[in-house]
Deep mutational scan, measured.
Amino acid sequence: KVLVLALYDYQEKSPREVTMKKGDILTLLNSTNKDWWKVEVNGRQGFVPAAYVKVL
């Protein structure tokens, strides 16, 4: 399983997205889209901007 680090806070803007806080460790589920990556955080799955996270 691939983990990513949240570099910035992100507030979800649609039901398909998830909120994350800077420093959160998320599970990367899909990174085929260069702009939006699907992650799991706190038991929820959704998209975050790829530029806001870094693969650990």
Rank of each mutant, 00 (worst) to 15 (best):
V39M: 02
V2N: 14
I25H: 07
D9K: 03
V55Y: 13
L29K: 06
R16I: 15
L5P: 01
W36Y: 11
D9E: 08
G23T: 02
V48Y: 00
L28P: 01
Q11L: 07
E17L: 04
L7K: 05
M20D: 00
E12H: 10
L56V: 11
V48L: 02
I25E: 04
V4H: 03
A51N: 10
A51T: 12
V18M: 13
V55A: 12
L28E: 00
K22Y: 06
P49N: 02
Y8H: 11
Q45W: 08
T32G: 12
V55P: 13
A50I: 04
V48Q: 00
F47H: 08
V53S: 01
L29F: 05
V48T: 02
M20R: 00
A51V: 09
K21S: 14
K22L: 06
L56E: 06
L29W: 06
L26V: 08
K22R: 08
F47Q: 04
T32C: 06
K1I: 13
M20P: 00
K38G: 07
V18A: 07
D35V: 12
A51W: 09
Y8E: 13
N33F: 11
N42I: 07
N42R: 12
L28Q: 01
S14G: 13
T27Y: 14
L3W: 11
A51E: 15
A51P: 11
R44C: 04
S31Q: 12
D35Y: 12
W37R: 02
F47D: 05
I25D: 01
G43E: 07
V4L: 13
G46P: 01
V2S: 10
D9I: 02
L7D: 02
R44Q: 13
V41W: 11
S31L: 07
T27N: 14
L5E: 15
D24S: 09
Y8P: 00
E40G: 07
Y52E: 02
E40V: 08
Y52L: 15
V53L: 12
K38Y: 15
N33L: 09
L56G: 04
N30T: 08
S14C: 07
A51K: 09
I25G: 01
S31A: 12
V41I: 15
R44G: 05
K21I: 14
V4N: 01
W37H: 03
R16E: 12
N42D: 15
K21A: 11
Y52T: 09
Y8D: 14
S31H: 12
L5M: 08
D9S: 08
N33E: 15
K38F: 10
K21L: 11
K54H: 15
Y8C: 06
F47N: 05
D24F: 04
L5Q: 13
V48S: 01
V2E: 12
K22S: 09
S31D: 15
M20L: 14
G23F: 06
L28T: 01
G23P: 00
A50P: 05
W37A: 05
R44W: 04
K22D: 02
G46H: 02
P49E: 01
L29Y: 05
V39I: 10
Y52C: 05
K1D: 10
L3E: 12
D24L: 06
N30R: 08
P15T: 10
G23D: 12
G46E: 02
L7H: 03
W37V: 14
A50L: 02
K54G: 07
K54V: 12
V2R: 13
V48F: 00
Y52P: 00
L5F: 14
K1C: 06
P15A: 14
W37C: 03
G43M: 10
A50M: 07
Q45D: 07
E40K: 08
K1L: 14
A6G: 04
K1Q: 12
G23W: 08
V2C: 06
E40W: 05
V55C: 05
E17T: 08
K54A: 14
F47W: 14
K21P: 01
K38L: 13
V4A: 13
L5S: 13
K54Q: 15
P15E: 12
L7S: 03
V39L: 04
K54P: 01
I25W: 05
N42L: 09
M20H: 01
E17I: 03
E40H: 05
E17K: 05
T27C: 07
G46R: 02
K22H: 09
V39F: 01
P15I: 08
G46F: 04
V2T: 12
T32Y: 12
L56P: 04
T32W: 12
I25A: 04
T19S: 11
R44L: 09
G43F: 08
G43H: 08
T32L: 10
V18E: 01
K21Y: 10
G23I: 01
D35L: 08
L29E: 04
K21G: 06
S14W: 09
R16Y: 14
V2Y: 11
P49K: 04
D9L: 02
D24M: 14
